[in-house]
Design a protein around this nucleic acid. Structure first.
Lengths: 214, 214, 214, 214
DNA sequence: AATGAATGAGGCTTCATTCAT
DNA sequence: TATGAATGAAGCCTCATTCAT
């Protein structure tokens, strides 16, 4: 239901066996890293936002980088898979007889997720561009996402003659690329006015054509 | 011919009325900002790579941010338009009778450009994500790109019945999105092995279908 | 019998009216202070080695300096005198008819003691060099050592005409100085190979000459 | 003439190609390290005493430890040999016909040096006890001291029948040990009243006996 | 008595920036 | 114009110490 990273992040925090102050540190870190970037966030900034002494920031995590790992790791390890399974359950599972409806659902849902979690996604992308280690973590996680159900759906529509007979990753690539062509500008602007419904309809119309059999 | 930013950048440096050392500073800045990100590049790093005293970095540019502005500004102001017009002249001008050939040329050319200038593009993207001012500059520049020739080509193919009758920006969006779906991973990996020809063919096949009239 | 400080230290701990954990704290402090110096030993290091919570270190001793005082004080107050009396009983009491045998026994015994307790001696020396208070304590203790028996032995050998008729402290000074000339290097090296028997024989031969009457 | 470490240190500083402020930093470091020990001296202390910004402390030496190495290294590399040659020229060269006079000169001279440079010697000893690297440096330097002249003098007195026929290092050992038996207490007390002349006479009388032939 | 999370002062270090030469 | 020594604010981190449980 709640496909909102801070909320999910909070849930994953509750599962962690750390004190409330430590949770506040992680929350503040996520927020500040997202807002200003990692390098521009000082441990003193974090301490202030978390209402905590600066030393407290270092009780659980020995290094600012450890903290970054914990924050991003938590997003990656806990949130991403959670998103994926939710995505599969909410969207993909819905058995639409019509591929077009299925596709629009899918796109609208992903756009919504993207917009909701813009700050966190922004920081993930930003850091992954210069941080090798993080990059590997992200790739690892994304690679092992449980996408079987999605593949099955595709196969179903392919058998029905509603979807071109290309391999799974290629189809996913175009759906992602087209969706991203609507979403990417948001990475750079504030979350300006954006009509999700209209965008997903437009994108779907294009994709349906490009992905029809023949 | 040379659609490679460091080379173009050098050309734009020659036009600037500054000493050789100052040019070396700008060159080093471009390189280091690209490699490690702006925040992680110290002015001392720049001085070392430019073979220049620390004070020299501050002779022409009063602050590190001024330097960043100069570097990025130079890329944006001089290089981007240059790229655009070159792109228009080299690629778009070529009058292909067939939209498919036109499209593949276009995509292949842009992928090549992207790969060649990966480091500079990386830093432009990275900084634009947290730097409001830069963001506006980029948008400003990109918005006013002289794309009339491209628009004319599209109109031509539309009249020929080879291209769907959507508005210019929508068509550009899908071409960009699809191209980006092949290029984006390169932003995160090193410049892994990548078959441009194959990618541009695949992308073209998809786009042709999605963008055919009807 | 056991002229080894950690063991004696343990005995003195048993006499103290403190809990087992507190004893562990003192033991760990002795070890770490010896190994790395007081300034370079953190209370957290001590807690870890003592298998105790950080707060526990502060239950019995209010400050780190109190802890240092307790450790060194214990060595000085309890152990040094114990050593002294043992030394007197074991070595000096033995009535050797020959001064040379007496002297060699003495030196060999002290060298053995020195080597066995190198770490503790090292820290005592180190701290005494910058810690006025400790310095006074050590001097106080050493000054009041019960050395009457040793003095009596000397008088005996002086009457026998085997020992020069100098005052007690002067004779002690040369014995100590000569013995130290063999022992001191060990303070700086690890416990390199060292032949106690050979060293004590050599030292004795020299001292016998220097301390003969006339 | 001036066998005083701070003065010699200053001379060695003048030979170094560094600014006055940097010299002030090194001087302040030597003073403070000597007075309070390395661990208890903060870089801020050093900056204050040197009348310099804290950042200045780090211009020449990248680390507090580098600074320590520079200070101690300078003492070891420049001062120790200088001392040694001076010692050889002033004391050993003096051709005394009588070994006793030679010996007393030697001891008095060394005691004087020791007292004059107490603070610096103290810190050298203190640090060498826990700093392996430094230890090796000191040993290296002391080992290669130019002691040939001293050895030659000893050989001369041995031929004259004034000095026992033991090997060089053994004789040096006893002279050092006996001298140290007078000097060592000064390491721990302040430089209390100390009669150098009396001490050197007393020590000489003992050594002459212990080192006579036969 | 024991715990261990929390504290905050202070230590080491970096770095953008200035300025005399 | 170029230099590079100097600056000092600010960042990261450690550690002795406190306190609620």
């Amino acid at each position: 239901m709640a496909n909102n990273i801070p909320t999910l992040f909070d849930k994953s925090l509750q599962a962690m066996n750390i004190s409330d102050k430590q949770k506040a540190v992680l929350r503040a870190s996520l927020t500040l890293f997202s807002e200003k970037g990692v390098e521009s966030t000082s441990t003193s900034d974090i301490a202030k936002m978390a209402n905590v002494a600066e030393g407290t920031v270092y009780k659980q995590f020995k290094t600012k980088n450890d903290l970054l790992q914990a924050v991003i790791g938590s997003v990656i390890d806990t949130v991403v898979p959670q998103i994926a399974s939710e995505f599969v359950n909410e969207t993909v599972n819905t058995e639409e007889p019509d591929f077009k409806d299925f596709l629009q659902n899918l796109i609208q849902n992903r756009l919504q997720f993207f917009i909701t979690n813009l700050p966190q996604i922004r920081i993930l992308i930003r850091e992954a561009m210069t941080n090798e280690e993080l990059r590997l973590q992200v790739i690892e996680k994304v690679t092992h996402l449980h996408l079987k159900k999605l593949a099955n759906s595709f196969k179903y529509y392919q058998k029905q003659g509603q979807l071109v007979d290309w391999e799974f990753t290629r189809i996913v690539r175009y759906i992602l690329g087209t969706t991203a062509s609507y979403a990417a500008p948001l990475l750079f602007s504030g979350s300006a006015t954006f009509n999700i419904t209209h965008a997903s309809q437009e994108a779907t119309n294009f994709l349906i054509k490009g992905l029809q059999p023949r």
